[in-house]
Amino acid sequence: MTADVLALRRSPLGDPPLDVRGPRLHLRELAFRTLLELRGPTGRPAVGPDEHVWPLGPGWWLVDGTPDAAPALESPRAAAWRAALGPGAGVVDVSCHRTTFALSGPDALLVLSHGCSIDLERVPVGQGVQGVLAHAQVVLGRVGQDDWRIHPRASFARHLAAWLVDAAAESWEPWGDQED
């Protein structure tokens, strides 16, 4: 039953899944991640392997966690975080409100710089920013030197995917001198 219901899920991008690879870039959607907004913790909350946490504002965090195993109106991890953070903290399940793109490869930063005015070079690995990419509000997280997570709102996901694929035209098919 659980599996049948899970099979009904569609990521904001729909089918087929986004997974484009070029010699210097790899763009894909990581569908159905468990995304939670936490309010309250002043220090960065600890998360498990293959999970990330990005600061959204003072005492405000986005947790990017692994997918849940069962369908639910609200991810059970929201309740777990509430219990862990104690009274006064807030947890909102935004797993479907945003989605997750992974953009990796030596050209990742270059592609982002086509549509983002933030000084992303200066964002250290492990840090994230909220801002505008390609006219859409996004959360950007740097998980490695050349490895980024992009969390657009679900309704903007198709726009952003189309924009990223387009912006990366010269990375899918490099020509002439490679730029940085």
Binding site: G57, P58, S117, I118, D119, V129, Q130, G131, V132
Partner: peptide
Amino acid sequence: HCGPRDETE
């Protein structure tokens, strides 16, 4: 909190 950003943000 976020440092310098463009006015449009």
